[in-house]
Design a protein around this nucleic acid. Sequence first.
DNA 1: TACCAGTACAACGTATCACCGAGTACCGGA
DNA 2: TCCGGTACTCGGTGATACGTTGTACTGGTA
Lengths: 108, 108
Amino acid sequence: MDDLTEMLKGTLEGCVLDIIGAEETYGYAITRRLNELGFTDVVEGTVYTILLRLERNGLVQVAKRPSGVGPPRKFYTLNDAGREERARFWAKWEYVSSRIDKLREGGR
Amino acid sequence: MDDLTEMLKGTLEGCVLDIIGAEETYGYAITRRLNELGFTDVVEGTVYTILLRLERNGLVQVAKRPSGVGPPRKFYTLNDAGREERARFWAKWEYVSSRIDKLREGGR
DNA sequence: TACCAGTACAACGTATCACCGAGTACCGGA
DNA sequence: TCCGGTACTCGGTGATACGTTGTACTGGTA
């Protein structure tokens, strides 16, 4: 699939939020997860910018722990604000995607 | 629904493309159509930027005609390149939205 | 020992996009 | 005559994903 960049704007952060919400995890693993989900072009740099943004906005709790197979990892968990934001994201997604699907079906 | 700006990036242009593809129309009417579709915060300035971009990228054919109820209108129609782009948009949308829905259902 | 691949994160700059605001202009009705 | 509705243009702003480069730790292997 060719360039999805623009279409991922505004949704990628929500996806990361959701992945963290499912279980405590770290940047490198999140990137792999997104790749295997089908977003093959998403690179580490992108995910780390999102993670730093989430941290700066106070949506996640961070814990640095050694990994054994490389440098230490920063593990992320959602806090209350993060869980709220995640719910808001899915509400928005539901809203937007349902309306676009309506347009597609020629819904006048 | 609160701010959808970021989530519309990359999809709004596709929506406009689709609306034009359905029938010959003009900026002001496209804005109204998007508003009634549920994208109530989309304003004329935004739509006109998209239309100028579509024109610059050679995806539409333009015809200026008097309106009778105000200043002349610029009517837009998709050309071959525009129809291709529209198809590409829906393919991308199908791809992205299906994968996000999968994430949402906890699809591991 | 020296090198390399895999893992892991950070920081810089860039392009694109939706939005905002202000401006121009045409028309009909109160 | 003014005002609301119609209709388009243009310049600037902020948010976001991406590309690139750099740092650094580990284990395997030639």
